[in-house]
Design a protein around this nucleic acid. Structure first.
Length: 111
DNA sequence: AGATTGACTGCAT
DNA sequence: CATGCAGCCAATC
C-alpha cells in the first residue's frame, strides 16, 4: 500500500457515504472529494482489495453504466450487488437515475 | 526525474 | 450515435 493513501481515504470515505440503493458517478465523487479527478476515483477503485468495506459497486460512470475494466466478472458482480440493493437497471443495462441518483451526503445540498 | 497508464468526463468532429 | 482528443492527479516503471 502506498503511503499516499490519504487521497484514497478521501475517495473511499465518499464512497462509503453512499447509502444503499443509491449510486454516484466518478465525477460526482471527484467533485465532492475535491483535489482529484474522475480518473483518481477510478484508480482508487481499481486499487481496492476484494474484501474491502467500500461499496465500490455503487460507483458507476456518467452513463449510469458499470465501467469496470479490470477483472472480467467485476462488472457482473457490481451489477448483481446493485440489483440486490434494489437498484433497477433500465433498458440497455443503464441505471434509472430518477430512482438511484445520489446527490451527496446532504441529499441535494452542495458542500 | 521523465514517461506511461488508468474502473472518467466533456466537447469537438 | 460512434470516434477522437485533451484535461485532470497520482501511481508505477
Amino acid at each position: 500500500m502506498p503511503p499516499a493513501a490519504s487521497v484514497y481515504e478521501r475517495i473511499y470515505a465518499a464512497v462509503r457515504s453512499i447509502p444503499a440503493g443509491r449510486v454516484a458517478t466518478y465525477g460526482q465523487i471527484a467533485r465532492m472529494v475535491g483535489r482529484c479527478t474522475p480518473r483518481m476515483v477510478g484508480y482508487a477503485m481499481a486499487a481496492l482489495p476484494d474484501g474491502t468495506d467500500v461499496p465500490w459497486h455503487r460507483v458507476v460512470n456518467r452513463e449510469g453504466r458499470v465501467s469496470v475494466r479490470s477483472r472480467g466478472d467485476g462488472a457482473r458482480r457490481q451489477r448483481m450487488a446493485l440489483e440486490a440493493e434494489g437498484v433497477r437497471f433500465g433498458p440497455g443495462g443503464r441505471l434509472d437515475w430518477g430512482e438511484v441518483a445520489w446527490e451527496g451526503p446532504r441529499g441535494g445540498a452542495a458542500w
